[in-house]
Design a binder for these strands. Structure first.
Length: 321
DNA sequence: GAAACACCCCGCCATC
DNA sequence: AAGATGGCGGGGTGTT
């Protein structure tokens, strides 16, 4: 049994603190025998007042955190690391534990000196502060989560969920992670490198302006589309198109196209019986070989395995013991 | 898996 | 004066 310890600190936000329990505390997906055991661990043994007036009692001590296989640090109160917690985290790391922080929890790992010289991230509101206090950390404020040398850090709130799913993926494979994601009703895989926020969250003239362009692209998604094509369609230079596209969607044309193509492929695999070879063509991902490798690279499973797992219930009876 | 090829895309910067 | 544009260079990425 893989033990997971969640460091609980006074004033910690509920969501960040709870995601690990949701992911690692649920019953294992079909086909997984050895799952996780999650514990809330804290310095001292009195009740702990969390954010929003919730009180935690009956938790484990800090020794259980030190001995865990994976340690999750969801938050740092006031961006300060309780010395005893930082010490415990460092000891856990020395013992070979896998470490993961969510949101401001990165400040605890940083205070323990574990992020020095490593790539790390945190909530975008705190990224500058983290870099200021610890100049040797390579802070990337634009990703959902990063891993460097067995130490994982993730951005705010929901990115912690993506990180926990990534850990499941590494431990038990993509199918198990996808099953967990499906039960939680969240997207199965958000890549760690995905931007933390879209540059313009509120629709602006820009965004409304490119909507028809996106529509046009979706309408011919099965055929090759280059930046030059998009630029011509939008009556602007390729250089300006790339800029405007980024402003409006938070990503680049090719990445957006690939994302749409993968989504379409997923849909076709889930809801139809169209052969994989033809799904490759319909989704615009090129040759079947290229399609397979791209699909696998993005979602961690092969197209046929994906179809096997997510086939719409009722179509073909799946293997259910 | 390697290699060739096309295309991407982002900093730079003169220009509008 | 300030911001948007778009050509260019070339390391990076994707496809065959």
């Amino acid at each position: 049994m893989h033990s997971v310890a969640v460091a609980v600190t006074p004033g910690a936000p509920l969501f960040e603190t709870s995601v690990a329990f949701e992911v690692f505390g649920m019953s294992p997906p079909d086909g997984v025998a050895v799952w996780y055991e999650v514990r809330a661990c804290a310095v001292g043994n009195g009740p702990i007042r969390l954010a929003s007036g919730f009180v935690l009692d009956g938790h484990h001590g800090i020794d259980d955190l030190v001995g865990a296989d994976t340690v999750i640090v969801p938050a740092a109160p006031e961006l300060e690391a309780p010395p005893a917690l930082a010490e415990a985290v460092r000891t856990a790391h020395d013992r070979g534990a896998r470490l993961a922080s969510i949101c401001s929890g990165a400040f605890v790992l940083a205070a323990a000196g574990l992020l020095d010289g490593r790539r790390a991230t945190t909530h975008w509101r705190y990224a500058a502060e983290l870099a200021r206090r610890h100049p040797s950390i390579v802070v990337d404020p634009a990703v959902l989560y990063v891993e460097d040398g067995g130490i994982f850090t993730s951005a705010g709130t929901a990115a912690g969920l993506d990180l926990c799913l990534e850990l499941v993926r590494r431990d038990h494979g993509a199918a198990a992670a996808n099953a967990v994601a499906r039960r939680l009703v969240v997207p199965p895989h958000r890549d760690g490198g995905q931007a933390q926020y879209v540059a313009t969250a509120v629709p602006t003239g820009d965004q409304l302006g490119i909507a028809p362009l996106l529509e046009w692209a979706l309408g011919r998604i099965d055929r090759p589309i280059t930046v030059a094509d998009l630029a011509a369609q939008a009556h602007m230079s390729p250089r300006t198109l790339v800029r405007r596209f980024g402003d409006a969607t938070g990503t680049t044309p090719l990445r957006w196209l690939t994302m749409q193509r993968i989504r379409l492929a997923q849909q076709l695999l889930e809801t139809t019986e169209i052969p994989v070879e033809r799904v490759a063509g319909l989704s615009g991902l090129g040759s079947p070989a290229n399609f397979r490798s791209r699909f696998r690279q993005t979602l961690g499973v092969t197209p046929s395995a994906y179809r096997q797992t997510f086939r719409t219930p009722g179509r073909t009876p799946g293997p259910r013991p």
